[in-house]
């Protein structure tokens, strides 16, 4: 009897064990199928982007890499294999290459921090529901409609040394006129001023959107605790806004490294190469001198620089970004 009972209980235990194992394997299988379905869904959602990027970004990129090892004729056809010559001559030019790098870095330093800080101050001051704020929001968003073409057309008239309004205003303040675009010391600053103005609308709109995304409870609690407008802005809002700020920083640095239109129209890289940024040099190489191979090589070097900068920002700064 005893043994039969124990046998039975052992059997029962065995069945229970088997059932448990079965259940476990079923959950495992359903987990696996969820995972598989997630993998499928993820890539399905990405499919349209993959298609467009494949044809209009990755393929041309690969083709540019190919071209960078070739010498091309002015019609863009490959004439001879160049090996690393295009790259070697770029770095062999030493001082000229360093000058364009310096102009690019300075331009980024003049435009990115100023552009973000000004937009942040204006967005923090105008995001609340107060009288007249809608008018200010429209005013500060307005430069977003300006293109490099229209913006430069307006500013080239403002910058004019004798008839321009900027020097007229300086004259009213009894200051000496500045040769905005003709003075090598000023040209990059002038182009940067115009660029900060042109980018302000975009920066402002993105930050306003970010501020609006913060929940009302937080604004209410700020009002109750009343730490004062500046402490509340910097102690509470900035950490909450950090994903938006991080996004803006990355996009602005990339944009600054790729600026072309206003430089093409306002200074053409001069005077004395003071505004000859990397992109402008590439443009001249490819579309003025028709050296597509060497132009491609320079474009790829620029790409590598921007890529390294962006990765650096991700590794050092994203830890400080506060995601909810």
């Amino acid at each position: 009897m005893d043994s039969a009972q124990s046998l039975q209980s052992a059997h029962a235990g065995h069945t229970a064990h088997a059932a448990g194992a079965l259940r476990a394997s079923r959950t495992l299988r359903s987990l696996r199928s969820i995972k598989r379905r997630d993998n499928f869904t993820g890539y399905l959602f990405l499919l349209p982007c993959f298609a467009f990027f494949g044809v209009f970004l990755f393929y041309p990129l690969a083709k540019s890499v190919y071209l960078s090892f070739q010498i091309t004729n002015p019609r863009g056809e490959v004439a001879a294999y160049a090996g690393l010559d295009n790259y070697a001559s770029l770095f062999a030019s030493g001082a000229a290459f360093l000058a364009t790098l310096k102009a690019t870095v300075l331009f980024t330093l003049y435009t990115v921090p100023a552009g973000i800080v000004i937009a942040l101050v204006l967005a923090v001051m105008t995001h609340a529901k107060r009288p007249a704020m809608k008018a200010f929001q429209y005013a500060f968003s307005l430069p977003v409609v300006i293109s490099a073409g229209t913006g430069a057309a307006i500013w080239i008239l403002l910058f004019h040394p004798s008839a321009g309004m900027l020097n007229y205003f300086l004259g009213l303040l009894h200051l000496k006129p500045v040769f905005w675009l003709a003075d090598p010391k000023w040209a990059l600053v002038s182009v940067s001023m115009m660029t900060v103005w042109m980018n302000l609308g975009f920066n402002y709109i993105v930050l306003l959107g970010g501020l609006r995304g913060i929940s009302d409870d937080i604004y209410d609690s700020l009002k109750l605790d009343g730490p004062g407008p500046f402490r509340s802005a910097f102690g509470v809002l900035i950490p909450l806004l950090s994903p938006t700020l991080f996004f803006l920083l990355i996009v602005s640095v990339i944009g600054a490294f790729q600026t072309f239109g206003q430089i093409h129209i306002l200074t053409k890289g001069g005077p004395m190469d003071s505004t000859n940024v990397m992109v402008y040099r590439i443009y001249q190489e490819a579309f003025v001198n028709f050296r597509f191979g060497s132009g491609s090589a320079q474009a790829l070097v620029l790409f590598a620089v921007i890529l390294a900068l962006t990765l650096a920002q991700f590794f050092w700064l994203e830890k400080k970004v506060h995601y909810q």
Binding site: Y59, I282, G295
Partner: peptide
């Protein structure tokens, strides 16, 4: 993300040909 950093001059000639 790296596609965002591809400068337009890298892609514009091949895209024009396409």
């Amino acid at each position: 993300l790296s596609t965002m950093m591809i400068p337009w001059e890298v892609t514009i000639i091949p895209n024009y040909l396409t």
